[in-house]
């Protein structure tokens, strides 16, 4: 595909008097792993949620694979099926097993046969290290295991783009590692990812590019090593100092 995978122009969103997005332009190329960092309330989640139409912007456009993303549009389900999303709170379906969570969308949306979906689902659970927990219910899994199931669930739709909104913020330090390992593998395998994270080590080491969002704008944007090594703005310098400059935790 020529051109960017994600193309965002002039994105604005206000909540009452609060400006969440204040004119965001962004292109993401296929294969890029983009980390989004920044202070709380900077608009990171809102930006991510606009990319798959969970939030409708007040102004501006989002295109993924050249298709406009519009919340409520007739083709929104087809567009969303190509975009995976992983949430901070997992949002696994509690009435389904781990495998059921992974196979639901392939069966319903892509019309896969139960056999085919199960086979792929088991392979995906294997890939995130949970091959032996296929029959477990979400409430029988630890936080880290749940998040890995959620990642497998997103991967099951073979998305061209994966969105992560603070995927490890609800996890213990011990289980954070197992989720980050899975994400690191994904990043290496060439999956296009946008990752909102407070894990500075992950942003610095595993992403190809980092955005610093502040006050609803992309305040800084550059290759991750350079951005962390030489922050240009005082705001980013202060932010990195507060978060220990991305020193490994």
């Amino acid at each position: 595909m020529s051109g960017p995978l994600v193309r965002i122009r002039g994105l604005r969103k206000r909540w009452g008097g609060v400006t969440a997005l204040d004119g965001v332009d962004l292109d993401v190329a296929p294969g890029e792993v983009v980390a989004v960092i920044g202070p709380s309330g900077g608009g990171k989640s809102t930006l991510l949620r606009c990319v798959n139409g969970l939030e409708a912007p007040d102004a501006g456009t989002v295109e993924v694979e050249g298709r406009p993303v519009r919340a409520g549009a007739a083709d929104i389900d087809r567009v969303r099926a190509r975009i995976g999303m992983v949430f901070q709170a997992f949002h696994l379906f509690p009435h389904l097993t781990a495998l059921g969570n992974v196979t639901l969308a392939p069966r319903l949306v892509r019309g896969e046969s139960a056999d085919a979906a199960d086979r792929r689902g088991r392979a995906l659970l294997d890939r995130v290290g949970l091959g032996d927990r296929a029959g477990a219910r979400p409430d029988q899994l630890s936080g880290g295991q749940r998040q890995r199931v959620a990642i497998a669930r997103a991967l099951a739709m073979e998305p061209s783009l994966l969105l992560f909104d603070e995927p490890t913020s609800a996890l213990d330090p011990e289980t954070t590692g197992e989720v980050l390992d899975v994400m690191r593998d994904l990043a290496r395998s060439g999956t296009t990812m946008i990752v909102v994270t407070h894990e500075m080590a992950f942003a610095r080491e595993c992403s190809s590019r980092t955005l610093f969002m502040d006050g609803g704008r992309i305040a800084e944007d550059g290759p991750s090593p350079a951005l962390f090594a030489e922050p240009r703005s005082p705001r980013l310098r202060a932010f990195l100092a507060r978060t220990h400059g991305g020193a490994p935790r």
């Binding site: 798959n52 969970l54 389900d77 087809r78 969303r80 099926a81 190509r82 975009i83 995976g84 999303m85 949430f87 709170a89 949002h91 696994l92 379906f93 639901l104 969308a105 319903l108 949306v109 959620a150 669930r153 997103a154 739709m157």
Partner: peptide, 19 residues
């Protein structure tokens, strides 16, 4: 979050409600 997770996978409103 259940709605958001289901819709983000490409399920329609009706599919999300039913399943």
């Amino acid at each position: 979050g259940q709605w958001e997770a289901a819709r983000s996978l490409g399920l329609s409103h009706g599919q999300t409600l039913r399943r």
